[in-house]
Amino acid sequence: MLIAMAGLPGVGKSAIADAIGERLGLAVVSVDPIESAILQAGIDGDQPTGLAAYLVAETLADAVLQTGRGVIVDAVNAVAPAREQWVRLAARRDVAVRFIAVECSDPEVHRARLESRERDLAPLEEPTWHAVERSLDEWEDWAGESADVRRLTIDTLRPLEECVAEAVEFVRG
Results as ranks from 00 to 15, higher is better:
A122F: 13
D94H: 07
E103W: 02
R113H: 11
R117N: 09
G50I: 04
L65R: 06
D62R: 14
P123F: 09
L55M: 12
L136R: 15
A96Y: 00
V97N: 02
W142A: 13
A122Q: 14
P107K: 05
E103H: 10
A147G: 09
V109A: 11
R134V: 02
E126G: 06
V56D: 03
D137S: 15
G70L: 04
A96I: 00
D74N: 13
V64A: 06
A90R: 06
G45Y: 03
A57I: 05
S146A: 10
G42A: 06
A63T: 09
A63L: 06
A143L: 13
R88N: 05
A147F: 01
R92Q: 08
G45L: 02
E115L: 08
G144K: 11
I38Q: 05
D46I: 00
G144T: 08
A96R: 08
E115N: 09
G70S: 14
E108A: 13
E133L: 14
V95R: 06
E58P: 00
A101I: 02
E58K: 15
I72A: 09
E84D: 13
P81K: 09
G144V: 04
V109K: 13
V97P: 00
I43L: 11
V97L: 10
E125D: 09
H110P: 07
V71N: 10
V87A: 04
H110D: 12
V73G: 05
A37L: 13
S36C: 06
T49I: 04
A101E: 12
E145Q: 15
A41H: 09
W86P: 00
P127V: 10
R134P: 00
A101Y: 10
R113Q: 12
N77W: 08
S116V: 01
A37W: 09
P123S: 04
L136Y: 14
Y54N: 07
P123T: 07
A80L: 07
I38A: 02
A96C: 00
P123H: 10
T67H: 01
